[in-house]
């Protein structure tokens, strides 16, 4: 504590103007975070931006290339295909996952379940499973010959479509991601539900409303902010999609290509292709697109919220 004003003992600080003291104290509390933020977040980001203006070739070494890497990203078909794929994923998987999470949160909050704690933990446990392990596990289940899918097909006396095939892979990844993150989103929504003041329910009951009406008129509107938060997290998560397809790649190498998602593409370019600079440019572009979509979602939700 003595480090913040080495020239004067801490006791002297009190003698100064109270406003300054509060400012100093505020700064003190803020400094640890600021340091970590600068070192762990701001510096790598700036470094990535810096890297993206150069090119380091196996023959020829490092040269400054200005915006060349960004120009290349604009015309890179593999990058665009990956972006479109995660956009499709986002459009389908996120609403499904949040819908299921909402239903689960409402069910647990309704007070009609016998052991709500068990359900709460049960839904949440998959989130505690590392995504690599989750993908490995689902990879086994998806097996058509010896996995669960194969067994179910056997019982039904038919061959089910291959979950790891070209047409179903994205849906299969969506299923893994939904399984993993549904409980996490449910918890965000459930916490918001617990924050609703009891008087509202009492008033509602006096007006003769049932559970459905209560959910529709009180709970869901009260969940606006929490749902928005969960949506923004999910948008970011979708664009960052990496672990699940990367693990499933060993099972379906020709379906999950090296450029299946933008993150996988950047990873392969950097670590197999040593194109750290172009990869940094892709990361910056991807980050910018994610930020724009997340902000737009938030902005439009806030505007429509005010107009109500």
């Amino acid at each position: 504590m003595s480090t913040f004003s080495p020239s004067a003992p801490p006791g002297d600080v009190r003698a100064r103007a109270p406003g300054t003291v509060r400012g100093v104290h505020g700064l003190l509390f803020f400094t640890p975070f600021l340091l970590v933020f600068l070192v762990a977040i701001a510096a790598p980001l700036l470094y990535a931006v810096y890297l993206s203006f150069f090119q380091d070739r196996l023959v020829g070494g490092v040269t400054f290339v200005g915006l060349d890497n960004y120009r290349r990203a604009l015309t890179d078909g593999l990058f665009h295909a990956g972006l479109l794929r995660v956009a499709l994923f986002l459009a389908v998987q996120v609403p499904v996952m949040l819908g299921v999470a909402l239903l689960a949160a409402l069910a647990i909050d309704s007070g009609r379940l016998r052991f709500p704690g068990v359900f709460r933990i049960g839904f949440f446990i998959p989130y505690a499973v590392p995504s690599v392990v989750a993908a490995l596990m689902w990879g086994y289940l998806y097996g058509r010959r010896f996995g669960l899918v194969g067994d179910i097909g056997g019982w039904l006396g038919t061959t089910l479509p291959d979950p790891l095939g070209r047409s179903w892979m994205l849906a299969s990844i969506g299923n893994v991601v939904t399984w993993e993150y549904m409980g996490y989103n449910m918890l965000i929504l459930y916490a918001a539900l617990r924050a609703i003041p009891g008087e509202l329910y009492e008033a509602c009951q006096m007006d003769g409303a049932g559970e459905i009406r209560k959910a529709w008129s009180i709970k869901i509107p009260a969940l606006r902010k929490a749902l928005l938060l969960a949506t923004v997290f999910s948008i970011i998560g979708s664009f960052q999609l990496f672990n699940e397809p990367n693990v499933l790649q060993s099972l379906a190498p020709s379906v999950v290509t090296t450029s299946y998602t933008p993150n996988m593409y950047a990873y392969n370019l950097a670590f197999n292709g040593q194109q750290f600079n172009y990869s940094a440019a892709l990361a910056v572009v991807l980050g910018a697109i994610t930020a724009i979509i997340a902000f737009t979602t938030q902005g439009s939700a806030n505007r429509s919220g005010r107009s109500r």
Binding site: L58, P253, T258
Partner: peptide
């Protein structure tokens, strides 16, 4: 090749396609 690691990594994107189809 002096860049065989990358060359091998994109095998699945290209030559691997007709193998699986």
């Amino acid at each position: 090749l002096p860049f065989q690691v990358y060359a091998n990594s994109v095998f699945k994107d290209t030559a691997g396609q007709p193998i699986s189809t």
